[in-house]
Design a binder for these strands. Sequence first.
DNA 1: GTCGGAGTTGATATG
DNA 2: ACATATCAACTCCGA
Length: 546
Amino acid sequence: MEAKTKATLIHWFRKGLRVHDNPALMQIFTTAQAAPKKFYVRPIFILDPGILDWMQVGANRWRFLQQTLDDLDKQLRQLNSRLYVVRGKPIEVFPRLFKSWNVELLTFESDIEPYAQTRDAAVQKIAKAAGIKVETHCSHTIYNPELVIAKNLGKAPITYQKFLALVEKLKLAKVLDKPEKLDALTQPSRDELEQENDKVYDCPSQEQLVKKPNELGPNIFPGGETEGLRRMEDSLNDELWVARFEKPNTAPNSLEPSTTVLSPYLKFGCLSSRLFYQRLKEILAKHPKHSQPPVSLVGQVLWREFYYTVAAAEPNFDRMLGNVYCLQIPWQEHPEHLEAWTYGRTGYPFIDAIMRQLRQEGWIHHLARHAVACFLTRGDLWISWEEGQRVFEQLLLDQDWALNAGNWMWLSASAFFHQYFRVYSPVAFGKKTDPQGNYIRKYCPELANYPNKQIYEPWLATLQAQREYGCVLGEDYPHRIVKHELVHKENIKKMSEAYKINREVRTGKQEDSMLNDDNDELEDDRSATGKRKGNKAAGAAKRRRK
DNA sequence: GTCGGAGTTGATATG
DNA sequence: ACATATCAACTCCGA
């Protein structure tokens, strides 16, 4: 067959949905450019229609992905290429493509997530059997998590400061520009494309990807590399702001974001974290008196690196059981409270406003995440962080396996952070940066007529006043589901107890746990919320020490 | 093994 | 507006 005379080079996009600073894409471009008569270039994205139904992805993130793929296709076309969106499962798609496209080389960006590792190992195996070369590149993070762990003698650093000390000694990879425009010969001819009906590789429309369009909110953060780069430049424009940035001094409840909102773009790799880091460093060099990690902007990027590193060493990073980092805490199930939290109906206006902003817009400030995460777990509701993780996983544009789990463990004082007696007040915390309650008035409009004095605590208003404000508790807005001033103290005691038990298991009686270790490894109940037997917790806690 | 200091971002009262 | 002490007390790390 004539088509066999030319070989195809594939770059497989997964995360890293960009053309700039993309070493795996660069590899096939430069290889083809060196011998355009020999190679076709085909950048692909694999879309499994099956996952649209079960994956924990809300409408807003589907839209973000759709817009990102659209933009990626445009960027590639400017380079004389295009995006081939292939429908199917990777293990079914690749054998087909390898054959019909006469593939010689496959490149992709490495990924530490367990599901990705399993998928990639399967694809590697298929490629090896077909005699196809595979090259992977680490470019989703600034530092390679595996290298950081190796540098720390095979163990992930579990404190941020330790992590900083480690990476300071590591070399930075060179940030790449976007590739040169390809020679036209690297593209299949019009005839060939028509023969294989290339329309099947077109980007999905919003209708195809967003199955529940009624759940879409305002499109405040459109997806794509172009928008990611634009947003970065916009943020970097004010150099003094960049140099003086301190996260704790930014407001969680401003009406316009007080931080960069680059997280969705970093999550999908629309924006290279390595480019952002380089640009930040260039600016800071001009401003000797700048803020420092952990609170600085560079510090924020390095938090992402920290969580990627610890997560890379633990396949159970998103669960309490069998997770080396995670304290075993007897969280309790409470479906009504979980539902109230999930949909912003706790009766605490600050908490509810945050949860509603999350649902509508797909992004909330980091400290807002703190407030609602503390409230769900150790602060008020005593519900497992895994439940909160699930809700965030669905609603956040920037949903990221490592960061989401890591931050939930942090906030619930299950790992990395241990000062559980520091509890956020669902009333006082927001008042510091928004005493007028404008944020609440926007996202909980039924409360808009409450005076400043009662907007954070509507239960202080008399029934007559509630009627006057046009919002009666129990009718127009819920009564608060718990009394924070009582419950948070009880929860601190529960945390103290849980810590004590974990400590005892760690240091003392380990005899009974020996027997159960193997069973724990087989534990696979992802919905478990901690109603565990004592010896199971003992086994899990014991492994934390290894 | 023990001890003290540090730890991205608490709330509150007091100066 | 900002700084400090108190609350009751965690883990990790390095000396």
